[in-house]
Structures are given as structure tokens and as C-alpha cells.
Simulated assay, not measured.
Amino acid sequence: MRTVVSVHPAYRNDIGDLVTRRPLPGPGVENVGAFLFLNHHGPQAYPPNNRGLPFGPHPHRGFETVTFILEGELAHTDSAGHESVIRAGGMQWMTAGRGIVHAEVSPAGFKRDGGAMEILQLWLNLPARLKMTAPRYIGLQAEGIPAIEAEGAIVHLIAGAFQGETGPVESLTGTMLGWVELREGEVTFDGLEGRDVFLYAARGTIEVGGRQVPQFHLAQLSAGDSVTVSASEPALFLFGHAEPIDEPIVAHGPFVMNTVEEIRQAFADYQAGTFGVAEIVEG
């Protein structure tokens, strides 16, 4: 059974008027294996006639982004021709691969009317053999994501398997990923031997092996084949596990590669226009 080795608080790194906490990377933890980066935007309330999210067109190469829309809405467009507006309870999984430009902004209706907003974005590493794969995008509304009832919990399964069910996204690297709503009770995940395990408390306080993980904290776990997460009050946490990628990680800005030369090439390719162009479509 896995236990908590260390707990790391997210640090505030607001982007303009967007409340932002970043638990990964942070002091004491650069990455959790294949899990590279997490931004937790909100929770906050936007007033009417707001400017919305500030993430205009920008490039990526060499990894994947998974975005959880807990509250509010998110409009996506990219240079591969994908467009969507994902509502609360939905998610989007984008494989940047060899290179993509995307924009993530608030739809026109949200900027006009305002409302609650809470969004989390997680970066997943790709091994060298997949860093130049073709870009891919999958956007799902809440109704397209299995909500699996476990004792005292609801597991919103995006990728991988849990209790005999499979998530709608087929991960290129065999990653299991989802978010869990805990009432007063517990949930156990098995099949973790030898895998990188990601655990972040987004709402409320959770407990693993007798140690508390407060809201806005990331937990690093010991080795083992299973983990049980419990709560004595309503809580929500992100959970995932992935095969280790035993390769160098060289990250600079929007690119994650294996060597400095590959980073230089990524910048050169982007500046040469090979990633394409993404127009902002606000829905």
C-alpha cells in the first residue's frame, strides 16, 4: 500500500486577474515522473463584461496537455483545425506532438455574463519516440465522461481503466487519468506497481495512509501496488498513473524535449511557421 512521502503546497502565480496556483513544478519537486506541470486557475467569480482567460495563440511541442474544466467554459482553437467550447464538467486532451499552436480563451457569452471559473491544466510528457507524433485533440463534455460510482466516491474516468470500465481517451502512453469527487468515504486504486502516481488535492482535505493532504497540495507517494484515498468531508482530487519515461527532460517555455538542440530546433521551426496558425474563436 502506498503512503505519503512528502506534501508540496501550490504557490500563487497569478496571471493578471486570473487566480493561479502552481503545485508542479515547485520548490522540492520538479516533476512526478511523466507528470510535468500543473496550473490550477481559480476558483473565482468573474463579473459581467470581463476580459476572460488570457491564453491567446501560443505553441507547444513534445508533450500533451490535459485540461479539466471544473467551473465555467473554455473555448479552444488550434492550428490543426480543431475548435470547441467545453463546459463545466468537461475536459480536453491535446497532443502537441511535433508542433501545434492553440488558443484557450473564454467564450463571448462568459465574457459578457461572467460566472464561476475553475480550470486545471496538466502537462504529460511524451517519450522520444512520440515527441514528433502528429498533433491530436479530443474535447469531451461532462456527459461523455464516465462517472463511476465507488463507495463514497465518484471517479470521472478520462483515460485508462477503473473497476472494469475504460475511459474515452486512449492515451498514447497508457496513462490512467481522471478526477475524483469524495464524499465521506474512501476509494482504492490498484495496479500501481512500478508506475509514476500523481495525486493533487484540488478541493477539501484528503488523507492517504493516515497523513493529510490539504487543499492546493500535491502528494508524492511511496512505492507500492495500491493506494487508498479517504476524506471526512467533501473533497475533489486529480489522480493518475503512468509508465516511467527514463529519458532526459529538457523544458524551455512551451517546449519539452530531450536535448537542448531539440529545444533550439523547436523555436526555429515555430518561427519558420511550420506549426501553423490558430485564430481565436470565442464561440
Results as ranks from 00 to 15, higher is better:
residue 4 V to H: 09
residue 10 A to D: 04
residue 11 Y to E: 15
residue 11 Y to P: 04
residue 22 R to E: 05
residue 23 P to F: 08
residue 25 P to Q: 05
residue 26 G to L: 09
residue 32 V to W: 08
residue 34 A to P: 09
residue 38 L to C: 09
residue 42 G to R: 02
residue 51 R to V: 10
residue 59 P to V: 04
residue 61 R to S: 14
residue 62 G to Q: 12
residue 65 T to C: 07
residue 65 T to D: 00
residue 72 G to N: 02
residue 74 L to T: 08
residue 74 L to M: 14
residue 76 H to M: 10
residue 76 H to T: 10
residue 78 D to I: 07
residue 78 D to P: 03
residue 82 H to A: 13
residue 86 I to S: 07
residue 87 R to E: 07
residue 88 A to E: 02
residue 91 M to K: 09
residue 92 Q to H: 10
residue 92 Q to V: 02
residue 98 R to N: 07
residue 98 R to T: 04
residue 103 A to Q: 00
residue 106 S to V: 06
residue 108 A to F: 03
residue 108 A to S: 12
residue 114 G to C: 05
residue 115 G to H: 01
residue 115 G to P: 03
residue 117 M to R: 07
residue 117 M to W: 04
residue 119 I to Q: 14
residue 121 Q to E: 06
residue 124 L to N: 03
residue 125 N to E: 02
residue 133 T to C: 10
residue 133 T to R: 06
residue 135 P to R: 09
residue 135 P to Q: 12
residue 141 Q to S: 03
residue 142 A to I: 10
residue 144 G to P: 07
residue 148 I to C: 15
residue 149 E to W: 04
residue 150 A to G: 02
residue 154 I to F: 04
residue 155 V to F: 14
residue 158 I to R: 04
residue 159 A to H: 02
residue 160 G to K: 00
residue 160 G to F: 04
residue 162 F to V: 06
residue 172 L to F: 08
residue 172 L to H: 11
residue 173 T to F: 02
residue 175 T to R: 05
residue 175 T to F: 11
residue 176 M to W: 14
residue 180 V to Y: 08
residue 180 V to D: 08
residue 181 E to S: 14
residue 182 L to A: 11
residue 183 R to N: 12
residue 184 E to G: 00
residue 188 T to R: 11
residue 190 D to S: 09
residue 191 G to H: 09
residue 204 G to N: 06
residue 205 T to R: 07
residue 205 T to C: 01
residue 213 V to T: 05
residue 216 F to H: 15
residue 220 Q to S: 14
residue 223 A to D: 15
residue 224 G to L: 03
residue 225 D to W: 01
residue 234 P to K: 02
residue 238 L to C: 04
residue 240 G to M: 05
residue 241 H to D: 11
residue 242 A to C: 07
residue 244 P to G: 15
residue 253 G to M: 04
residue 256 V to R: 08
residue 256 V to Q: 03
residue 257 M to P: 04
residue 260 V to H: 13
residue 261 E to A: 15
residue 262 E to V: 01
residue 262 E to G: 01
residue 266 A to E: 06
residue 270 Y to M: 15
residue 271 Q to C: 02
residue 271 Q to R: 11
residue 272 A to R: 10
residue 283 G to K: 00
residue 283 G to F: 00
